[in-house]
Design a protein around this nucleic acid. Structure first.
Lengths: 353, 353
DNA sequence: CTGAAAGCGCTTACAG
DNA sequence: CTGAAAGCGCTTACAG
């Protein structure tokens, strides 16, 4: 390999063997204290004389000392790893969530370990258990739908693993929850369509295994009700949060007489399917049909017409979730930042006369 | 929390306190050997009497013993963590790669730690270094474009961290490379278009920071040349692997006179942009224009018309990369499984007369 | 406020 | 083929 580009390192000059990283013993010796006192500084114990602390901190900084998480973990009987446990098939969701978690963990010394899972697998709980116990995880963040799994939560509580569940509505103690309040998004969708004069509106739900399916529907119904409208059972179809299910449900809805003038799809993927079905059936969007999605993932801007949707701040939610897990919840932020909000684009318009 | 759904555990019956996990000392005592001998069994040392080994293995199985990776790591001076270092902005790529890595790591006792990075950041190498050194990673997998960064590779080599680079062409020693051979995909795209009778073909490349941009172009040119066609500089635009850049480049190409009858976009994202631009300019696909992408991510099937593209087996590539990193490369598989291949859908058709 | 001893659960280096 | 001792780099429990 080319030596060009090899980084200069502080650890060793040219020709010297790489010096090993300093340990707590090195720092103790250099600061003329016991390693226990260095340990107190590392762990921010209040019982250290101010001058002693400053001396030790100076030595630590000078030598770029960082405690070994493995040794620390062995003594603490837990690791400095945080697990992301997920079963959401949407890559955009997963990546946004990961980025949010990493945002919140930045500088904390923790690392993120990913654990996709399958609630339907017979070894689901056993796998989760061995993942958490073997690595002695500091804690895990659970996202939908596995966040709504009582078996998983009970297992974690049972083995004493800290966790935070991200879900559309509270299903656990407050310190173990981040609520995304999808219901509010459903309401906003309904009100947007009502404001555009739509009366015959339809809804395509996600699968019942996701609590968000229900919350989005109930929010939508509540929003319609606030404008004197109702969602008929004929105009309600159960999808699966997939593109294909969006197509199928939309085809059924577009064959109704009279045809609905607007469809609220439970997520952007299904909304993309609705647009596809409309195109195939010669239904113009938004002239003949308004379409609204949920998520505001990248696909929303790529669709044609571009998709009116409900934005969910997934990355921000992820940041909040880990911070809460690490006990560093940052209360200063506007809670508004984490609520679903309407994004109007081209796929919605006034109801046809 | 509801106790319903709490998993039954072998570790403790009702009312009992949870028993701690067995350690190497427990196994040694139960098998009437020293812990060193248990250690030999754990580490598959050949120097253990067959009967001794079997006795120990039975005790291990009976008690569900699994060595503590932290303690093992402390003694080994390295962890059982594998890092995924990436800067590819495409969520589908990242998730597919992660799934592939996890496939390959399944049952190995290693865990996957994710590390997105930014080559343009001034702290890029320092961040990578501290990530690897602090966690004493077993090794890392690098994916494009960071896989092509000589500074990163040199740093890892310097600090003695094993790594495997996933790139379109070999840029390192064979044991440190997984080649995706994107050039072959470019060739297949060219031959498909040539077979359909296209003569005036255009290309939208990715950014120069990705080696794949060049490989896909060179493959395309080679494929055209094999059919007596050439790619003119007028018909070559530099995009950025983004939807928006696909739109911009396609608009420029579609204003040429004579207009190209086919466009090969360097990835599916840009191909989506080409379809968008064509729609806006009233150019029909595939009647007036054939479009072909690269990747075969989910978006390809959702576009309208659905996208002809080059499939890249990202998940399989990921599986191979970690196995190679762990020294368990599985040579039995057909190498064919990992090559790019043409997927014909609706966006390509015969050249207009 | 500070430290010496013992221990976390493994492995290495050395004996036998 | 097997084991007793020492050590990996930290923390806990106990003294002072």
């Amino acid at each position: 390999m080319a030596k060009r580009g090899a980084p200069e390192t502080e650890e060793h000059g040219p020709g010297e063997a790489p010096r090993r990283r300093p340990t707590i013993n090195d720092i103790a010796r250099l600061a003329s204290v016991s390693k226990k006192t260095v340990s107190r500084v590392i762990n921010a114990s209040p019982n250290v004389h101010k001058e002693t602390r400053e001396r030790i901190e100076a030595v630590i900084a000078e030598h770029g000392y960082a405690p070994d998480p493995q040794a620390r973990g062995l003594a603490f009987r837990r690791s400095f790893l945080i697990g992301l446990v997920y079963d959401n098939p949407n890559p955009q969701y997963v990546v946004n969530m990961q980025l949010g978690l990493l945002d919140g963990m930045k500088g904390s010394g923790y690392e993120l370990v990913v654990h996709p899972c399958n609630r339907a697998s017979p070894t689901f709980l056993a796998d989760l258990r061995s993942f958490v116990e073997r690595q002695k995880l500091f804690g895990v963040v659970l996202t939908p739908s596995v966040a709504e799994d009582e078996g998983a939560a009970a297992l974690l509580a049972d083995i004493g693993c800290a966790y935070v569940r991200v879900a559309s509505v509270s299903v656990d103690r407050p310190e173990r929850m981040i609520e995304t309040r999808d219901r509010l998004g459903g309401e906003a969708a309904a009100q947007h369509l009502a404001d555009l004069g739509h009366k015959r509106v339809a809804f395509i739900s996600g699968p019942p295994s996701f609590r968000s399916s229900r919350e989005r529907r109930e929010g939508f119904e509540a929003g319609l009700a606030s404008r004197g409208l109702t969602l008929t059972s004929q105009c309600t179809k159960e999808g699966a949060y997939t593109f294909e299910s969006g197509i199928d449900c939309a085809k059924a809805l577009l064959m109704l007489t009279p045809r609905p003038t607007a469809i609220f799809a439970g997520n952007d993927e299904m909304a993309a399917g609705v647009l596809q079905a409309a195109r195939q059936m010669g239904v113009r969007v938004p002239e003949d049909l308004s379409v609204i999605g949920f998520d505001d993932f990248e696909i929303a801007r790529r669709l044609w017409p571009s998709l009116t949707t409900i934005r969910t701040p997934t990355r921000e939610i992820g940041r909040l979730a880990v911070q809460q897990l690490m006990g560093r919840a940052d209360e200063s932020r506007e809670p508004k930042d984490r609520l679903p909000s309407l994004v109007v684009r081209e796929s919605t318009g006034p109801a046809a006369a």
